[in-house]
Write a protein that binds this DNA or RNA. Structure first.
Length: 599
RNA sequence: CGGGAUGUAGCGCAGCUUGGUAGCGCACUUCGUUCGGGACGAAGGGGCCGCAGGUUCGAAUCCUGUCAUCCCGACCA
């Protein structure tokens, strides 16, 4: 390709819409254009990058025994109702775009394809003899994100590779899961990315084990924790650790003290010389359940700990045996709407009575009371006295239990955020370090969640029907491309890893009007093309400076500059990533390139 | 959904306080000079100033409404 014919529109100024470096560089380099919020056009350069990535993904998926397919993007609501996800994915903050056709039928634009594929598998796979099967597709997905941002990082339309495997038993599922793990590591490595596998929450997809692949970058939306012995890594949503020991509380009488206007842990500790770990704080939330009811939740947590809402939502889902659509703190406004008296926020204790929910208009009138272990393990502690400006000191769970608190071990669990520098559960001598990561891949052992819900199964060896064991495996293709830029750039522009660069070599003719230069440039370009190299020839009648700036910006890994030494047959071979320059005869430059690119 | 900000040429912005019919840089077109790190000069093209109402002789500017986009938050009260 010649730059004179390439749709290449580079920008000198950074468009105001772009926040992070990779987004800015992709816009400035003419790779993408925004068409609407969270919706982007992939321009020719970007499309080449995406094709390079998908080629690698296809190779590795095929090598791992998967088969490519292509599923519809328009999904009948009926399928999603069968799996029980229609409500959760469309109501409230649901992420599925949905619509009605002219006959009034409900349809959704596919945010993911478990329903479609599980239904198809049930029709096509009838015998254990056909199993296992692993199907994948590379296709545009639609998600109505609460807040699309950072260009391709969180779009409402994005390219994803998703795969779904079907098995006769769990052991076979684990085999494929392990194969996908290996394939994913190879894919990210081949794409030139530093990606870390971490334990992950399975989220709305559901299922048992799951692992995310994170490209480490400061702009990452996720916080990941990695043990310094290299044995454990997890998304903070999922991560566990050994909490620091609490500071023992001086012995004293269980009594109520006046704490005027001290409604925060910080203020209380500053004023009374307490340590946050000596307090039990109580958070009130309300969970909107899939059946439409609103369940008030009371969470007790040690004062120095943070609530992990993902763990909380998972706990509620498990205990209520249904999905949680939304879970948020209770506000005074909520109480007014529920026609309830005010609650002494900032002074609440774990024994807050059910009475405060008496007469709620729509909420359930009892709390789901949950305790984090850091709180339940405190022998003596300080907590709110359930009255404005009053706290209770030197109290204990036994003392509070006199107030008839339910005592169900299932209600005491891990609800806290693990944090950097804390000791690891698998090895207390090791400690967690935090990094930010961009999630580019996620693999799940779904188990039988979808096959059971959709009554999709096969006939086993003994002739009876049973649901499939399933796995699913995703890679955000378009996100991966941008993550690569986030990880590989410098002041001047992008430095694409060779494997996914839109072109491999850029031949720059410094002055196209100089016939010697122009001819030598053409000659080198043609040799490269003949040798099967993805070469680009900058033959524009621009000044050399403009061409060099553009070359740095769009980040082609290798640059051959045909310039003032062309008459002597000398060219420059420049490496984009490290700026190294070698002046050498053009034949040597060509030989050097070819041996590097195809060893 | 809550909070904040912004909508003026393809991109980045000024003008708005104090109303008089729109400007700068980049990009684009033509000519000349220049020609290895985003050149210079000259001449040009391109705007229902987000949209709708209102005030006014007159509105990018003032008022009302509305729409859109971006940022922060939606978890510790």
């Amino acid at each position: 390709m010649r730059v004179s014919r390439l749709l290449l529109v580079t920008l000198r100024d950074v468009p105001a819409e772009a926040e992070i470096t990779s987004h800015q560089l992709l816009l400035r380099g003419g790779f993408i254009r925004r068409v609407g919020p969270g919706v982007y056009a992939y321009l020719p350069l970007m499309w080449r990058v995406l094709q390079k990535i998908t080629a690698i993904v296809r190779q590795e998926m095929d090598l791992a025994g998967a088969q490519e397919t292509l599923l519809p993007q328009l999904h009948p609501a009926e399928l999603w109702k069968r799996s029980g996800r229609w409500q959760g994915y469309t109501a409230g903050e649901g992420i599925m775009f949905h619509l009605e056709d002219r006959q009034g039928r409900q349809l959704g634009l596919g945010p993911t394809h478990e329903e479609v594929i599980t239904s198809l598998a049930g029709e096509l796979l009838r015998s254990y003899k056909q199993l296992p099967v692993n199907l994948y597709q590379i296709q545009t997905k639609f998600r109505d994100e609460i807040r699309p941002r950072f260009g391709l990082m969180r779009g409402r339309e994005f390219i994803m590779k998703d795969a779904y495997s079907f098995h006769a038993d769990e052991a076979d599922l684990k085999l494929t899961y392990a194969r996908m793990d290996t394939a994913y590591r190879r894919i990210f490595e081949r794409c030139g990315l530093d990606a870390v596998p971490v334990d992950a929450d399975s989220g709305a997809i559901g299922g048992a084990a799951s692992q995310e692949f994170m490209v480490t970058a400061d702009a990452g939306e996720d916080l990941i924790l990695i043990s310094d012995d290299g044995q454990y890594s997890a998304n903070q949503e999922k991560a566990v650790s050994i909490p620091p020991d609490p500071v023992p509380l001086d012995p004293g009488e269980d009594s109520v003290v006046s704490t005027p206007a001290l409604s925060t842990i910080d203020a209380l500790c500053r004023e009374h010389g307490w340590h946050p770990s000596q307090l039990v704080k109580v958070l009130l939330l309300v969970a909107r359940l899939e059946d439409g009811s609103d369940q008030p939740v009371l969470v007790s947590l040690r004062g120095d700990q943070e609530l992990n809402t993902v763990k909380l939502v998972n706990a509620i889902t498990r205990l209520q045996e249904q999905g949680v659509l939304d879970c948020r703190p209770i506000s005074p406004e909520d109480l007014r709407k529920q026609n309830l008296p005010s609650i002494p926020f900032g002074f609440i204790g774990p024994d807050l009575g059910e009475g405060v929910l008496e007469g709620a208009t729509t909420w359930r009138r009892h709390f789901l009371r949950l305790r984090d272990r850091t709180a339940s393990e405190l022998e003596h502690f300080i907590c709110g006295a359930n009255q404005i400006d009053q706290h209770r000191i030197n109290t204990s769970w036994t003392a509070l239990n006199k107030a008839a608190l339910p005592e169900d071990p299932a209600l005491t669990l891990d609800l806290r955020n693990a944090k950097t520098n804390e000791a690891c559960v698998h090895n207390p001598a090791a400690h967690l370090q935090e990094k930010r990561g961009i999630e580019v891949g996620h693999i799940f052992q779904l188990g039988r969640k979808y096959s059971e819900a959709m009554e999709s199964g096969f006939t086993n060896e003994s002739g009876s029907n049973e649901p499939f064991w399933m796995g699913c495996y995703g890679i955000g293709i378009s996100r991966l491309a941008q993550a690569a830029v986030e990880q590989h750039h410098d002041q001047a522009g992008i430095c694409w890893p060779t494997a996914i660069a839109p072109f491999t070599v850029l031949v720059v003719v410094a002055n196209i009007k100089d016939v010697t230069q122009a001819n030598l440039g053409e000659q080198l370009y043609n040799h490269l093309i003949e040798a099967g190299v993805d070469a680009l020839l900058d033959d524009r009648p621009e000044r050399a400076g403009v061409k060099f700036k553009d070359a740095d910006l769009i980040g082609i890994p290798w640059r051959v500059v045909v310039g003032r030494d062309a008459a002597e047959g000398i060219v420059e071979l420049v490496c984009r990533a490290d700026h190294s320059v070698r002046k050498l005869p053009h034949d040597d430059a060509l030989g050097s390139l070819l041996s590097m690119l195809r060893p």
